[in-house]
Every structure is written in structure tokens, then in C-alpha cells.
């Protein structure tokens, strides 16, 4: 079974993002970029499926600027067999990404597509669901376990009240939650080998689609800052403050 994995280039999760003084966007100058953590989990799951003999080929895909090829190389170093870069400098959000992915699903006919549940820059949590709709496929979102059983996929999902288990027909779309697995690190020899693995570059025009987001970003502001409070010296003082100052007890 061929597995397609979608990886997005985002700001490193450790970076505390700042807003541009003119409030047009966040300031990404000199900010460290990385693969979205949920995509690392998605790649890891694909690699494990291959190690278990379930997946036969892993194709990593990204939609974004030239620099996003770095994240494709990371995916290749982690075990993807080849990569497809849909290159664009447009501001792409979930619907655009899903449209590009849907075209590639049509071309590649994978048995399974794994995405992250959420990109930690836009915090959208949409692309997998949208791809599933566009491709007419079932979806298993927020997955903490996936098991291929013949032509079915059993997905354990992290839902508000706990866990839900559903069964999907294959092909299917899965989005990874945090507990799906713990991703490995790429080893140096694999990073070297990844440089030689095939990486196809396409444009949205090649695919016959538009990817630029139609939702206008009018303004980006910093959130209301919280004033740091005081340190209390004892439990008694804490209770006193909560009762008499904050009046929440």
C-alpha cells in the first residue's frame, strides 16, 4: 500500500512569535523554521507502517515556498521514499493545501494519507478533513492509534470525553494526534542518503488549481498581556489573597 504524508514548514514550536509593528502579520525574520510537530508524527507513523510491511512506498508532500524542500528532505531522511513539492509563494491555508493534496491523491492513488491534526502556525485543524471531503474518502481525525486490517482501517480517536474507535474503508485519510507515536530523529547517514532521493517539483498551475487563501488577513495584533502577579509566602497567605483580594473563594 502506498502512503502519502503531508508535511508543513512552520515556525519551530519553541519560538515565541512576535507581531510586526505595523500589525500586518507575525514577524518571521530570522525565526527558526521546522517541520510541524504533528507532521513529524505523521511521517513516523508511515515509516512504522512500512517497517511492519503494511506500507510499500511513502511519498512526502508539501505545498509552500522553495525553502519548504528542507522539510521534505527531513521526511526523506526519516524514511519517505520520494517527495513532491508543490511550489508557491502564495499564502496557502488549509483549503488550498487540501486542493493540492486532492490532486496528488488522484494522481498517486495512495491507500492511506496521513496528515497532522493541526499546523501550529495557523492552528487551523482543517486540511485532513477538507482533503477527505474533496477526495470523497472517509476520515479518521485526531488519531492515537491506527491499525490496518485487510481493506479496513481501525482508528482510535482522541475526542473530548475520552477515546472513540471507528472503522473506515480504505483508502482513507488520517490526521495524527500527539499520542499516535513518538517520532524518531533522523540519523546522519540517512540525512546524507536523503539528498539523493527523488524530489519532484510541481506548481499549482501544473495541477490546475489555485492555492492562495481567499480569507483576507486584515490585521495581526499581540494578545492582551497578562500582568505577572505576586509571590505568596505560604498557603495561608494564598487562601487569604484568593478570598479577600481576588474574591474567587
Amino acid at each position: 500500500m502506498k502512503v502519502l504524508v503531508a508535511v508543513k514548514r512552520v515556525t519551530d514550536y519553541n519560538v515565541k512569535i512576535r507581531v510586526k509593528p505595523d500589525n500586518t502579520d507575525v514577524d518571521l525574520t530570522n525565526v527558526k523554521m521546522a517541520m510541524n510537530p504533528f507532521c513529524e508524527i505523521a511521517v513516523e507513523e508511515a515509516v512504522r507502517l512500512k517497517e511492519r510491511g503494511v506500507a510499500t512506498e511513502i511519498v512526502a508532500v508539501t505545498i509552500g515556498p522553495k525553502a519548504a524542500q528542507e522539510q521534505l528532505r527531513t521526511a526523506l531522511a526519516l524514511g519517505a521514499d520520494r517527495a513532491i513539492h508543490v511550489q508557491t509563494d502564495d499564502r496557502v491555508e488549509s483549503l488550498g493545501a487540501a486542493k493540492a493534496l486532492a490532486k496528488l491523491v488522484e494522481e498517486e492513488q495512495p491507500g492511506l494519507v496521513i496528515l497532522g491534526k493541526q499546523a501550529i502556525d495557523t492552528d487551523n485543524n482543517q486540511t485532513g478533513q477538507m482533503l477527505a471531503a474533496l477526495s470523497g474518502l472517509p476520515q479518521g481525525t485526531f488519531a492515537s492509534e491506527v491499525v490496518v486490517e485487510g481493506d479496513k482501517l481501525k482508528v482510535t480517536r482522541e475526542v473530548d470525553g475520552g477515546m472513540q474507535i471507528i472503522e473506515l474503508s480504505l483508502p482513507a485519510i488520517v490526521t495524527s494526534d500527539l499520542r499516535l507515536n513518538e517520532p524518531r530523529y533522523a540519523k546522519l547517514p540517512d540525512i546524507m542518503k536523503a539528498k539523493k532521493k527523488p524530489l519532484d517539483v510541481k506548481t499549482p498551475e501544473d495541477l490546475g488549481i489555485e492555492v492562495a487563501s481567499k480569507v483576507k488577513l486584515l490585521k495581526v495584533e499581540p494578545p492582551a498581556e497578562r500582568q505577572g502577579g505576586v509571590k505568596v509566602g505560604s498557603v495561608d497567605e494564598l487562601i487569604d489573597k484568593l478570598k479577600n483580594e481576588a474574591k474567587v473563594l
Partner: peptide
């Protein structure tokens, strides 16, 4: 913006070929 809403609404948006605005 519950796990239900997040699961279903983007799928509806794509079926309608419109963006979804989260949270």
C-alpha cells in the same frame, strides 16, 4: 470548536468549496 465541530465543519466547508474559519 469541540472535537466534533473540528471533525465535521472543515469537511462541510470543502464540500461547499469555501474556507473554514477556526476558533
Amino acid at each position: 470548536a469541540s472535537t466534533n465541530g473540528k471533525n465535521v465543519l472543515p469537511r462541510v466547508a470543502a464540500l461547499k468549496d469555501v474556507a473554514q474559519i477556526s476558533e
